[in-house]
């Protein structure tokens, strides 16, 4: 009996210890967290892009006037010094539509608080990756208006830059253009073949999220880069519409890598 009594005492002590431990865990304050938002800007050669106001010379010597820019950013991930990956938003919300015409779209605030710490780089997808780029995923404007025709693979435009272009030396840009990117289409032996042009962007930037902070990072699109690196773009070659031009889609995909910069 004594033996069983001792076991009972031990079990009670163990239970009490577990309760204390559970209590301690339960009372532990939440991990320190910070709010965060992304701001979206546009530049041309480092200067704020003046849409609808002035013309710019691109690498080919041709000139452009930009009317508006719309694009999707998705799957934003912050990576800390230990390689820990923190999603900016939950998966189903980790996509954002940016439009130069919609002031409210130029800021994206995370709906949740993010862990504090030292972060070394930011990853995001310019456009929508294949899993996310599904027709009718967006039922409401303005996102739904970015739909990409089914005959070209469906889903959504990754980006639209709309404006006018002119030859080198022309003072006015009068020819409309739409640099519209999305799924590429090529004609193969068995019919149309589609390929993704979404690009994962990784930009090294050391920044801190501090407790109860409200961090803003800026995602800037340097428009001049679309036209020069690594491929020089010629409107005289590609014309004003490129959705059905797989070569042009690949050129813009390659050039996307140098277009975006994340900064504090």
């Amino acid at each position: 009996m004594t033996k069983w009594r001792n076991i009972g005492v031990c079990l009670r002590a163990l239970s009490a210890g577990l309760l204390v431990l559970l209590g301690a865990v339960a009372c532990k304050p939440d991990a320190m967290q910070s709010e965060m938002r992304l701001r979206f800007t546009f530049t041309f050669e480092g200067e704020s892009l003046r849409m609808g106001e002035r013309t710019y010379g691109i690498a080919s010597g041709e000139r452009i006037a930009v009317s508006d820019i719309r694009y999707f950013v998705s799957d934003v991930v912050l990576v800390d010094y230990a390689g820990r990956r923190v999603k900016f938003e939950e998966d189903d919300r980790n996509v954002h539509y940016v439009s130069s015409d919609l002031e409210e779209s130029l800021t994206w605030r995370s709906s949740r608080k993010l862990p504090t710490g030292v972060y070394d780089y930011v990853e995001f997808v310019y456009g929508l990756d294949s899993a996310r780029n599904v027709s009718h995923a967006f039922r409401n404007p303005p996102e739904s208006l970015m739909f990409w025709p089914e005959v070209l693979g469906g889903g959504y435009h990754y980006m639209q830059i709309n404006g006018y272009w002119g030859d080198a030396g022309e003072t006015a840009c009068t020819r409309p253009f739409g640099l519209h990117t999305g799924i590429g289409t090529e004609q193969g032996e068995a019919g149309s073949v589609h390929f993704s042009n979404a690009v994962k962007i990784i930009d090294t930037l050391r920044f801190f999220l501090v407790e109860d902070g409200d961090k803003t990072l800026t995602v800037n699109m340097e428009v001049a880069e679309w036209f020069r690196n690594p491929h020089e773009w010629h409107f005289s070659q590609y014309g004003g519409s490129v959705m059905q031009n797989p070569e042009a889609q690949r050129v813009l995909r390659d050039n996307a890598a140098g277009v975006f910069e994340v900064r504090e």
């Binding site: 709309n162 404006g163 006018y164 009068t174 409309p176 253009f177 739409g178 004003g240 519409s241």
Partner: peptide, 12 residues
């Protein structure tokens, strides 16, 4: 026209 919608890619 100078301000025709740039979405009319074949206007020129």
């Amino acid at each position: 026209t100078p301000h025709i919608s740039p979405l009319m890619h074949h206007a020129d």
